[in-house]
């Protein structure tokens, strides 16, 4: 049976994560992969081009070298390996899985917080502290999204869970209980 994207991502990411842990280059590798993720997201066709059977391997290799040069030897080797196995179209899943391993290692989580107005630094710090405490983590990082339809409160989405404290949802719940 064909492997699904997530399984493939996990396999490559686990190998790279363990190696970089042994070589003690975890933090720099993580940062470089974050840069790469940015790059991949900006150039959505990159993965498809690098796995395009119509192009010659030497041409693809040339393209890969142009953007991988700036990375450390570790990451370069890793990218070359992915290219050898023709899995570059799965690079996003691989980096995602790597980030999961990285977060689990440092006991932290990343997620998304939706609010009506942008949170100030103090609020952000408090929120992340409270979240980390609730789930027994060391830290919690999040992006702040603005959505005025919430009316008030925040929605925290992370680790496959949603904590919905928005006024919109509360009103909806009051409405449901009155309709009964």
């Amino acid at each position: 049976m064909k492997l699904d994207n997530k399984t493939i991502g996990q396999r490559y990411a686990k190998a790279f994560f363990e190696l970089s842990l042994e070589r003690k280059t975890l933090d720099t590798d993580f940062e470089e992969l974050s840069v790469l993720m940015q790059l991949v997201k900006e150039n959505t066709e990159l993965g498809d081009v690098l796995t395009d059977p119509r192009l010659r391997d030497s041409e693809k290799q040339k393209l890969l070298t142009t953007f991988s040069q700036s990375f450390s030897q570790n990451v370069q080797d890793f990218l070359n390996l992915i290219q050898d196995y023709k899995r570059f179209d799965k690079i996003e899943f691989i980096i995602d899985a790597f980030n999961d391993y990285y977060n689990a290692y440092y006991q932290k989580a990343t997620g998304k917080v939706t609010s009506v107005v942008a949170l100030d630094d103090n609020q952000k710090a408090n929120l992340s502290k409270a979240y980390a405490k609730k789930f027994g983590l060391k830290s919690f990082e999040f992006e702040n999204e603005i959505d005025s339809s919430l009316i008030g409160g925040v929605i925290v989405e992370a680790q496959g869970q949603v904590i919905d404290g928005s006024v919109q949802t509360k009103l909806k719940r009051v409405k449901q209980s009155l309709q009964k």
Binding site: K6, E157, G160, Q161, V162, I163, D164, G165, K170, R173, V174, S177, L178
Partner: peptide, 30 residues
């Protein structure tokens, strides 16, 4: 009803639909 209405924060576990069709869905997460 409003007096008994409890303002509890509910933690929902969610997943994301990755495939949908023919009355079947697949979801990541969960």
């Amino acid at each position: 009803q409003l007096e008994n209405y409890q303002d509890k924060l509910v933690v929902d576990e969610v997943g994301t639909v990755t495939y949908i069709g023919d009355g079947i869905a697949r979801a990541h997460g969960l």
